[in-house]
Design a protein around this nucleic acid. Structure first.
Lengths: 241, 241
DNA sequence: CGCTGTCTTGAAAGGACTCAACGCCGGTGG
DNA sequence: CCACCGGCGTTGAGTCCTTTCAAGACAGCG
């Protein structure tokens, strides 16, 4: 398996051998998590950041009364809490969904990168900005799309993001996320997520067998979701000096 | 008036004279906008970023059918579209709400900063990470708080952010934002925002006269909103090498 | 003084929620 | 090998929060 972070970052422009070596070095310490475990807790001040190598994870905010909002899904190649490097204290939590293989990158190493490798720094900064763009898109969904549009939107997004790291086959992919978790991401109740998925299936837009989702009509699914992949900035290059 | 960006950044640790001079230089080109004007449009690829010096502005996502979501409010000292420096293409738009005084910072100057001033780079990166944290908090509101809680939450946030730049007096501040704009930020209809504000006033939590908002019961307002200022990272320091 | 944008109000409709229960499946232990 | 168990998906019915539509009041501005 090639290095998921390097191949992700290289979508935004080539890295030098030296830069790639640095990345390989700082991501060499790996840790495994079981399903549905805390990787970082809200309020923690971690001294290393978690790069997801394998598996599904999520970030979430929890309210005192038990309500919770999942603010992002993370897959191979994603830095789930790179923001903690500079923010220090976690304002959100990171948890595994499936079993995960995670590289733990010391903040000291990241600091060293920012001191010595301006281009690499910009590329890492870039990835946190894409996170922000995805957040804004989700806000738009949460605020202005109805349940059907919202569900369709996240399916579109996950399909493209998984495709980018080679985790799709044709128009299908594995979605090992429970409807309860989807509900916490969509800002809906579990019951309503269930009914909405049935609607999408009933319209022939998607099919699902177990954890496998098949997108039957990509065009129409995008239309329903008003999905424009622009916000993922998949082809955007980060200029070198 | 002191430099709003410098004083904002210095909340997160002292800057050297050289760094401050660089910031003064790159923010010297100023432009004025009238109320409710586009500052940057979605889809643009600006070559400079907009630092709000005075006035209220917002970022927003617009859907094809006219629905729109405001994803952030920006005030003095905020870089409204620093993300465009690396993302290149705007996935959202920036508009003034009130008349605004804006410093236009060339991306070439920002690139130069990332090449020469690692600490300043980290501090700028930091500000975009705080934007992300605020986005996550808003997502939580949009997904999991009801109208009353959501309105209370944004009032709490704006109060603290305005206080940080000296734009409050005791427990009151100017909020020159129409209810329609608030609705687009809260993901509610204008009518419901109106009724919700009446409720909050009725409960004695806030008072408003014209565009002035008075927070009568800060404690209770925070409770209603389940507001925890942690996510604003106001006191977080960015370490120097 | 009239215009226009904003705030306010009422009534009816609708999308999503809650509560409650049931079926299905994989895992576990006897 | 089978019965039990817990997690997950599914369904039905009633309720509630928020929306939509429509119209009136108010205030600032030319």
């Amino acid at each position: 398996m090639s290095h998921s972070l390097i191949s992700k970052l290289e979508r935004h422009g080539p890295l030098s051998d030296e830069e790639k070596n640095v990345l390989r070095e700082v991501t060499s310490r790996v840790r495994d998590y079981g399903p549905r475990q805390d990787i970082v807790r809200e309020g923690d001040s971690p001294t290393e950041s978690s790069l997801i190598l394998e598996g599904f994870a999520c970030r979430h905010n929890n309210l005192a009364d038990g309500r919770r909002q999942i603010t992002a899904f993370h897959i191979s190649g994603d830095f789930a809490d790179l923001h903690a490097f500079l923010l220090g204290k976690m304002d959100d939590g990171v948890s595994s969904i499936t079993p995960c293989k995670v590289a733990l990158v010391p903040h000291s190493a990241l600091r060293e990168i920012t001191k010595t490798y301006p281009h690499l720094t910009r590329v890492l900064w870039f990835t946190t900005l894409v996170d922000g763009a995805v957040h804004r898109e989700w806000m738009t969904g949460l605020g202005r799309l109805d349940a059907r549009e919202r569900v369709a939107h996240v399916l579109c997004e996950l399909f493209l993001r998984l495709q980018a790291v080679g985790l799709t086959r044709d128009h299908s992919f594995e979605l090992p996320i429970t409807q309860t978790e989807l509900a916490d991401a969509f800002g809906l109740s579990t019951v309503h997520v269930n009914r909405t998925l049935q609607d999408l299936r009933g319209e022939g837009l998607v099919t699902s067998q177990g954890k496998t989702v098949v997108i039957n009509d990509w065009e129409r699914l995008q239309q329903v979701a008003q999905f424009d992949p622009e916000y993922l900035h998949g082809d955007q290059k980060v200029e070198r000096d």
